[in-house]
Design a binder for these strands. Structure first.
Lengths: 205, 205
DNA sequence: CCTACCGATCGGTAGG
DNA sequence: CCTACCGATCGGTAGG
C-alpha cells in the first residue's frame, strides 16, 4: 500500500468513527489531508472500498492475534486468559476500528457484509471451541458454552464502546478483564493460578 | 400516539434494524404500510424524529426496568441478580431497538445525540453505584467497579447483537447471564444463593 | 392519502 | 492533483 493510500485510510478510520460512514463525505477525508475529494480517486476506488478494507483487516488481525495467544500456552485456563488479554488489548488499541466494526455493519453493502459476518463468526467459533475444551477437561463450570463465549467477546468489544475511555492502560484492562472472564467461567482463584503450570508432576520447581 | 403513528414507528424499528437508518428510505417505511412516502408526513414530522423517539423511549424504559428490579430486593447480591435479569430480558425482548441503539448513534443528529448519551450514562451510573455498594458491603471481590459495571451491561447488550439469536428463551438467557454476572463479581455459588435472605437471623425458616 | 415536484447533497467522472 | 460538472438519490413540500 502506498504511503498516500495509507494516510487516506487512516483519515477514514478517524472520520468514520467520529461521524459515522454516511456522515463522512469524501470531501471531509480529502480536506483532512489537504486534498480535494476527486483526487482521492487516484488512490482508492470508492468510499465503500475504504470501509470494506478497514473492517476486513481489523477482523482478520483479531483472529490472528487470538490464534497466537492460544498457541502460546497448553493449559486451557491459561489459554483463555491469554486469549482474553489479547482480545481486550486489540479492542483497546484499535478503538476506532472496533467501533466502526460494531456500528457500521449496516453500511457495508452486500455481498461484503455477508462475507464479513462469516469471518466474524469464525472468530466466535474459535472462542466456543476454547470454552468447550475447558468444560470437557473439567476446568470450567459452564452450562451454555456458546452463550458464555459470546459474552466474553462482548466484554472485550465493550472497552471500545464507552463514550469516554476509562483512565486505565491497555495492560490494566487486559489483566482485569481476563481475570473477570476466568471467574465468570467458574475458575475460583484466577489471580493465584496465573502462570502456574498444572501438570500431574507437581515438583516442577 | 395514534394507531397509525404507532404502525409507522413499528415499521421504522424493523427497517432501521435490518437496513440501517441511512439505508432505509421513507418510501420503504411507507410501502411497508401500503402508503406513499409523503403521506407519512401527516403523522411524523421527520425521519430523524422517528429515530430519536425509538432511541429515547428504549433507553428510558431500560432505566425504569432497572430501578424496578433494584427496588424489588434489599440484599445487594439479589439486587444485582435481578438487575441483570431485567437488563438481559429487556435486550432480548427489544432486540431490534437494542441493535438500533448500538448501531445508529452516529446517525442521530446533535443535540439529540449528546442528550441520548447523557441518558445512557445515567443508566451506567446506576450500575456502578450498585456494584460499589456490593463492594462496600464486602459481598463482591472487585477492584475496578466501573470497569466491571460496564462489562456487565455489555454482556446484556450482546444478546441482541449475535447475527442469529441463540435458541434460548428470554428466561434462560436471563438466569444464565445473571449467574455469570454474579460469578464474575466474585460471588462463589450464585445458584445456591438464589432467593436466600442473608440476615443475621439464620433461623428464618 | 395522493401526484407532482423541488432542492440539496454527494459519490464519482471527464479532461487536463 | 486540480476545476468543472454530471447523475442519481431522497427527504420533504405544495396543492388538492
Amino acid at each position: 500500500m502506498s504511503p498516500r493510500r495509507r494516510l487516506i485510510r487512516d483519515a477514514a478510520v478517524v472520520l468514520f468513527d467520529e461521524r459515522g460512514y454516511h456522515g463522512t463525505r469524501m470531501r471531509d477525508i480529502g480536506s483532512h489531508l489537504g486534498m480535494r475529494a476527486p483526487s482521492l480517486y487516484n488512490h482508492v476506488s470508492s468510499k465503500q472500498e475504504l470501509l470494506r478494507e478497514i473492517m476486513f483487516d481489523f477482523t482478520s488481525s483479531m483472529i490472528r492475534e487470538h490464534e497466537l495467544a492460544v498457541a502460546s500456552a497448553s493449559d486451557t485456563v491459561e489459554r483463555v486468559r491469554r486469549a482474553m488479554e489479547a482480545h481486550v488489548r486489540h479492542c483497546a488499541r484499535y478503538r476506532p476500528e472496533t467501533r466502526i466494526l460494531t456500528h457500521e455493519v449496516p453500511s457495508l453493502e452486500e455481498p461484503s457484509r455477508a462475507e464479513l459476518l462469516d469471518l466474524r463468526s469464525e472468530f466466535s467459533h474459535l472462542w466456543v471451541e476454547l470454552i468447550d475444551q475447558g468444560v470437557a477437561e473439567g476446568e470450567f463450570a459452564v452450562q451454555r458454552t456458546k452463550l458464555t463465549a459470546y459474552s466474553l467477546i462482548h466484554i472485550g468489544v465493550g472497552v471500545a464502546l464507552w463514550t469516554r475511555p476509562l483512565p486505565l492502560s491497555e495492560s490494566e484492562l487486559a489483566y482485569s478483564l481476563a481475570e473477570m472472564a476466568l471467574r465468570s467461567v467458574g475458575v475460583q482463584d484466577p489471580a493465584a493460578a496465573a502462570g502456574e503450570p498444572k501438570s500431574a508432576d507437581g515438583a516442577s520447581v
